[in-house]
Amino acid sequence: MATINDKNSHALDVSGLRKSYDGNEVVAGISFTATPGTCFGLLGPNGAGKTTTLRCCLGLTAPDAGDIRLGGFDVPEAAEEARRRVGVVPQFDNLDPDFTVTENLVVYGRYFGLADTEIRSRVGDLLDFAGLKGKEKARIQTLSGGMKRRLTLARALVNNPDIVFLDEPTTGLDPQARHLIWDRLKQLTARGKTLILTTHFMDEAERLCDRLAILDHGRLITEGAPRDLIAAHIEPQVVEVFGDDVAAWARHHQGLGERLEVAGDTAFFYCRDSDPLLHALAGETGLRYMHRAATLEDVFIKLTGRELRD
């Protein structure tokens, strides 16, 4: 009995997940759990295995090995049952272009076996939540990118799910639209919903996620609360120095920071105490610099490297 309860206390429980395509292991044995009412982030460079992991969790791809429990159901065996309690905001908008805003919600609700009256009774609240009040009869082509994203979020909530998957929900949005989405996602966790989020934006992950995992080459390289990860992996102070010939200057003053990285015309000093370095910089006229606290992005870059991923 205890074990059953333990299993059900997780919204999503993944262990030992593996998936290969043509002998190329895209997901190489990853495990994580998401607690109800929290936001769990999956971060990683392009090709790290995030999307494949999400597809496995939703039962759209059968894993080669590993166990997945979603909302108390085994996936992929009982994936259809599990998806009844799940909402999905996909990476690319796939709203129905032939329908109005309301029709999009009604038609989508029918896929969950909901009666039209039930769905229509929810439309007002959903559009309120998404900031789309008054757009009931608008056609999809007339909506801005941000509106489409918000409608996609509203659509994902049509079945009142316990768990919401969000695959890069703010990619391509302007800052205003992004802040609105963030605000709504926080409201969702406040209502007890579990969010599973993938993103490229480290500030987004830092703001929204209670816990997050960083994936690279199909492996989970670290996991924890954003603040804890920063504290564990990175010196608290970062000084970015830019300018001509910064590389030589930086190597000469390497001792002023715990760690130094040079990328292009920028030198990154990671320091516990940045005063001596700032002092040295004060006398330099040819260099500009920026002093800031360490962020999740620094952790990400340290763990996954600076080279481009395509």
Partner: peptide, 10 residues
């Protein structure tokens, strides 16, 4: 991608 959207439901 209408089918993809539907496949995310039950």
């Amino acid at each position: 991608k209408t089918w993809d959207a539907i496949l995310n439901t039950p």
